[in-house]
Nucleic acid binder design. Structure first.
Length: 271
DNA sequence: AAAAGCCCCTGGATGC
DNA sequence: TGCATCCAGGGGCTTT
């Protein structure tokens, strides 16, 4: 479900509300991707300072240590003073003095992991190799260029890998490559400066607009307040195999790259 | 170092 | 209606 815009919108929807609260109790359901890494009792009484984001991870800063939270494919957060009774897919719940934070995640690819600090081994393992933040100033064109130049695999797979730039998932990778007019199978290293500049701009624009408009609802996203997003632009290519390109009416093609679906317009994305 | 595959898990859509 | 198959917005891990 969640790519960078959805994660960021989720963060914005509860960061203020939870900051300054104190943890009252924590309840775990079925196992998520990794164990929490500390006894739940150790979290009780700690103060929630702030919520940051790095890539698709949310970092919940406590007065001592932090929680790394990932939504995986199907995760969703809720934060409210009173939540409905926990259901079968609610696998993490943290009650605080200002409301309860709940992770609902049917597929359980998501995770909640405790780390002593940003430099703790577990935090380094999960965050250490992440690429540039596309919406921050460190997403610099020269560094993007340099990152792509040493990668022989396809540009689509490099975007998805997240070690050059983070946050671009399968939907946005397809959309951004369409906007930049780049064939997803093109080798990253083979792209010229001009096309890389265009791609760089497309990534910033699309992600920023998606955050500004409350996250994409290309499927079923909703923030931790339960507000559903409304991505103002419809998908140009994602999920549109066989349908007419919105620009040139050529049928959109679908292929597999690295076990994921890719959609593109063979005419608008000639090379 | 980088690339390619595998796998974790459940639910919804589709097809017979 | 029932059952099998395929697909899904992620990403760490192992093997080449």
């Amino acid at each position: 479900m969640p790519e960078l815009p959805e994660v960021e919108v989720t963060r914005l929807s509860f960061a203020q509300g939870i900051a300054g609260s104190r943890v009252v109790c924590v309840r775990m359901g079925k196992a998520l991707r990794w164990p929490l890494g500390c006894p739940v009792s150790e979290l009780v009484g700690r103060v929630v300072r702030a919520v940051r984001r790095r890539g698709k991870y949310l970092l919940i800063d406590l007065d001592q240590g932090l929680l790394l939270l990932h939504l995986g494919m199907s995760g969703r957060l809720s934060f409210a003073e009173h939540l409905a009774p926990a259901g079968a897919h609610d696998h993490f719940e943290m009650k605080t003095t200002q409301g309860t934070l709940r992770l609902t995640d049917p597929r359980r690819f998501g995770a909640v992991v405790f780390a002593d600090s940003d430099s703790a081994p577990i935090a380094q393992k999960l965050l250490g190799k992440l690429g540039m933040e596309p919406l921050s100033d460190d997403f610099d064109l020269s560094r993007f260029h340099a990152g792509l130049k040493r990668r022989k695999s396809s540009i689509k797979e490099v975007l998805l890998a997240g070690d050059v730039v983070v946050g671009v998932g399968n939907i946005y990778a397809c959309e951004v490559l369409f906007l930049a007019g780049i064939r997803p199978t093109r080798s990253a290293a083979g792209l010229g400066r001009g096309r890389i500049a265009k791609l760089h701009a497309a990534i910033r624009d699309v992600l920023a607009r998606a955050v500004a408009s409350g996250g994409s609802t290309l499927r079923d996203f909703s923030s931790a307040k339960g507000e559903s997003g409304y991505f103002q632009l419809e998908a140009m290519v994602y999920g549109r195999a066989g349908q007419a390109c919105r620009v040139c009416a050529t049928p959109i093609e679908s292929i597999r790259q690295g076990q994921r679906s890719t959609f593109f317009c063979p005419h608008c994305q000639k090379s």
